[in-house]
Design a protein around this nucleic acid. Structure first.
Lengths: 126, 126
DNA sequence: CCTTGCCTTGACGCCGATGTGAAGGCATAC
DNA sequence: GTATGCCTTCACATCGGCGTCAAGGCAAGG
């Protein structure tokens, strides 16, 4: 499978696949041409990468998951390193959630306060 | 008040204040030197900017709030434009919260699944 | 006069995952 | 031969809120 085909099958671009390779996440063989040649297992790997990216992981965080898959495991998140990353990310997400919840509360407060100010002003200029 | 003093009083840096000015958020007079000269009201403005930034607003979003303050209002979020931005941002934050909540759920699922796999493997290799 | 310490403008660096060319090689079909 | 459509590497652009030099002006005190 050439890079274009894998890109299409994975719903991404050749540029992106080369970027993953540059960061050691994907390792194609090379044809006599110099063309990258991927086997079917790489599709699974790329899907894993994309899913984790969508969940907010960085490429560095994703490495253990890929290694775990390559080690023959059915899923990438059963290995100790993956679990460590999962825990770290979970803590991060909890932090963001707390922050966002605070922000949301402040926003609501400010909105309702703004509305009140308006009502007061309307009573003053009837 | 010179830029260094305002920066210190606002808990930020001269570079940052110049950046705000570049984006039309702060408008100092100029001394004969060419030095920026700020009056005390600007401290309030800078505080508003910093608070909103901390709540995730971009500099463009903040403009209406500053304008509202300059228009003589006691708080920057009572003007219609500010309220519009507040609403938009609230919707955004709700979106992020939903997303993060999903991610969090997936993370927890993957973690518990990983733990289960482990237990199974331990039973197999006692 | 020289140092110190403020100020000025201008411009590049960062971070991360990609887009977007440029310039060229290879393969297949006409 | 040439048109098409893959592929290759190299390298700059994006977004935002600054940090961080660089090179220089101005003020005040020794």
């Amino acid at each position: 499978m050439l890079i274009g085909e894998l890109a299409e099958r994975a719903g991404t671009s050749p540029r992106t696949l080369r970027y993953y390779e540059e960061h050691g996440l994907v390792r194609p063989r090379r044809d006599v041409n110099g063309y990258r040649q991927y086997d079917d297992a790489e599709l699974r790997v790329v899907h894993e990468i994309r899913t984790l990216l969508a969940d907010g992981f960085g490429l560095d965080d994703i490495k253990p998951f890929v290694a775990c898959l390559r080690a023959g495991n059915e899923s990438g998140h059963v290995c100790p390193d993956s679990v460590a990353v999962l825990r770290r990310r979970l803590a991060e997400v909890d932090g963001y959630l707390a922050q966002l919840t605070d922000v949301r509360q402040r926003l609501r407060d400010q909105l309702s306060q703004a509305v009140q100010e308006r009502e007061i002003r309307c009573q003053m200029n009837p």
